[in-house]
Each structure stands twice: as C-alpha cells, then as structure tokens.
C-alpha cells in the first residue's frame, strides 16, 4: 500500500498531464465561444454593424426600431391544410398580434426617409402554439447570405462612396434590390403595402408531404403611388397617423398568399425571385382591428423571431431565418436590459 498524501516521483508527470487537460479544455471552450476568432460573424458583430454612428437606440429593437402595434385576427379559409398541418390553417379565426415598422435603426426616423417597410406578426392557435414572422415590402431581399448582409451594413455605414460601389461589384445580386429601392413606387400608407416573407420555409401536411414555400400578405387597399417629394411634405409620423385613422374607421385586410416552389427553385437565396408562374394558394386573411402605440402596446414585448414556427412549418436551406433568430434574440436581450431608457407611460406596470 502506498503512503497516502506523499507524491511519488511520477507525480510531476501527472501534474503536467493535469495542467495540459485543463489548458486544452479551457482553450477548446474559448475557441467554441468565439473568443479566439474575431473574424467569426457573431450576433454582436451584426448588431455593431446595425448601430448608427450616433449610438444604439437604447431600449428599442436594433433594426426596424420604429413601429406601432396592432391586434386583430387571422381568418384561415382552410386552403392551407393541403400544404401544412399548422393548426392556424384549419378554417377558422385565430388571434393575431403584430407591428408595422420601418427598416431603420432610428426609432425617431422621419417616415418619408425610410425605404423598407415591414410587418411583424404572431398568429396563435387555440392551444397557444405560436407562429411568428417578420416580413418586408420589397419583392426580393438585398443579398444572398447573412455575411453579405453584414458587408452591406458596413459598406453603407462608410462615408466613402467607393465602399458601396465595391460592395455592389462583390455582390451582384444587390443590383435587383437597388433597382427596386430606386424605382418602385412609394405609398403613403402601411395599409397599401404588401409584406413578403422573402425567406423560404418548408410546409409539411398531414400526409407528410413537404413543399418549400414563401408567402406574402397582399393588401386589400389599392396602392396609390406617391412621390417621395410629396411624402417629405407630410409629418414625421404620417404612416402611424394614417394607419391609426384607417383602422379606426374600418378593419384593414391582407390576403396571405403562399407560393409553392418547383424543384430546383432557389430556396436558399432570398435575393432571387421565383418565377411568376409558380402555384399560389390563398390561405387566409389578416384582419387588423386595433392600433396601439408601441410604448405600452402588446407588440413591444414580442420578438418577431421568424423561427418561432408551429408544427407543420420548419426552416428550409435558406440561411437567413437562423441568422435573424440569433441576432433578434441578442437585440431583445439588449433592449430588455435597457427598458429604463424607453419607459412605459402606462399606469403602474412594474
């Protein structure tokens, strides 16, 4: 029996082995955490690229920071059941909660200055299962990959005009979005805009059949083209005033249209449209019945993470929903911790 507590000669080697095990474990941990990889695209780096020179919008979403809440219903017509077993596609009425918003990091942006308009939406099934989505009005996304989106933010943030030119050369897919931004007509109302998922998802029906899809909310209101110069003459919050007035006088409606991909369509690249001839299925109607300011409104607390999906819907090979989920989550963590910078005005809510 060895004498306890008295190290033997071989213990130096053992101690070195122990130190090596600890060192390697710590190094592997640091590598996994990205602490040794400054080039890795992390949610923090994406948010840094979204942050304007004037600083982050404390207490607000890090992008699409300006918005207004709505509530209403999603009226499913039952046509979606053939594509997905999502409970919200069974004919019926489901509570909807959402947020009209502008694609800017400035919560006080002047409405006429922001090209991209968006809609965040949560549809709830009877048992509480949620489907969240966040859509925008351009027909295609600006770039093909999250890395390219980061490059776009960095280039757009530079004073040097050559930065954007270099970005456009390196990312030729950006030309289609730039053309839309330059020439597509503006409207004077959130109610006249279409909102597109752009990202593709996979629907699974009760039989287990799978289809790659994208979807759009197509407005019932007729879009009235208006020049940006005319919009400049309106107040800084004319979109919020307009949607508040419209909804007060009558519910506003959008038809949810699902587009089904053919085999070989570019499901992984939201910068590429699918051919117009693809099968389209109208699955229901979003009815917006009430508008509330964001500060005390029901959308404030919701992260419209597009990967919060019901059974019957899952992500596809499109890399954006995962990236958006990761960055939105970080944005939520930040703004929740900064809630004191965006205080609620309502009565005694802690």
């Amino acid at each position: 029996m060895k004498l306890p507590g008295r190290p033997e000669r071989s213990s130096l080697g053992a101690l070195i082995l122990i130190a090596a095990v600890l060192g390697c474990s710590a190094a592997a941990f640091a590598f996994t955490a990205g602490w040794l990889s400054p080039a890795r695209l992390t949610p923090d780096r994406m948010i840094a690229a979204l942050t304007p020179p004037s600083g982050p919008p404390l207490g607000h979403r890090r992008n699409h920071a300006k918005g207004i809440c709505f509530t209403g219903t999603f009226e499913a017509n039952g046509n979606g059941v053939e594509l997905s077993r999502a409970k919200m596609f069974v004919q019926g009425s489901y509570p909807a909660l959402g947020r009209f918003n502008l694609g800017t990091a400035d919560p006080n942006a002047v409405d006429a200055t922001v090209r991209v308009r968006g809609l965040g939406l949560q549809i709830s099934a009877a048992d509480g299962e949620a489907w969240r989505m966040a859509m925008i009005n351009p027909p295609i996304f600006a770039v093909s990959t999250p890395d390219a989106f980061h490059d776009l933010l960095v280039a757009a943030g530079k004073k040097d005009p050559e930065a954007m030119a270099a970005f456009s050369r390196a990312n030729p897919e950006f030309a289609a979005f730039a053309a839309w931004a330059k020439s597509a007509p503006w409207t004077a109302s959130y109610a006249e805009e279409p909102y597109n998922s752009l990202n593709s998802f996979v629907f699974t029906n009760a039989k287990g059949d799978e289809h790659a899809v994208r979807w759009s909310l197509v407005p019932a209101a007729t879009p009235v083209p208006i020049t940006q110069a005319e919009l400049d003459k309106r107040g800084p919050d004319f979109l919020e005033q307009d949607i508040t007035d419209r909804v007060r006088s009558a519910p506003q409606r959008w038809t949810m249209v699902t587009t089904v991909a053919n085999p070989g369509d570019p499901t992984a690249d939201p910068s590429r449209a699918w051919p117009e001839s693809r099968r389209k299925v109208q699955v229901g109607t979003l009815v917006v019945q009430r508008i509330e300011p964001e500060r005390d409104g029901p959308c404030r607390d919701i992260n419209f993470d597009p990967t919060v999906l019901p059974q019957g819907v899952r992500v596809s090979d499109d890399p954006f929903p995962a990236a958006r989920s990761s960055v939105y989550r970080k944005s939520y963590d930040l703004r929740a911790s900064e809630a004191a910078d965006y205080p609620r005005s309502g009565a005694a809510k802690p």
């Binding site: 890795r40 695209l41 923090d44 999250p146 990236a323 990761s326 970080k330």
Partner: peptide, 11 residues
C-alpha cells in the same frame, strides 16, 4: 457556441 454564431447550426 450557439450565442456566438449566426450560422444555420444556431437553430
């Protein structure tokens, strides 16, 4: 690892 990536493996 998951909180430091925006790659598809995040999900």
């Amino acid at each position: 690892g998951m909180v430091s990536t925006v790659a598809p493996k995040y999900l």
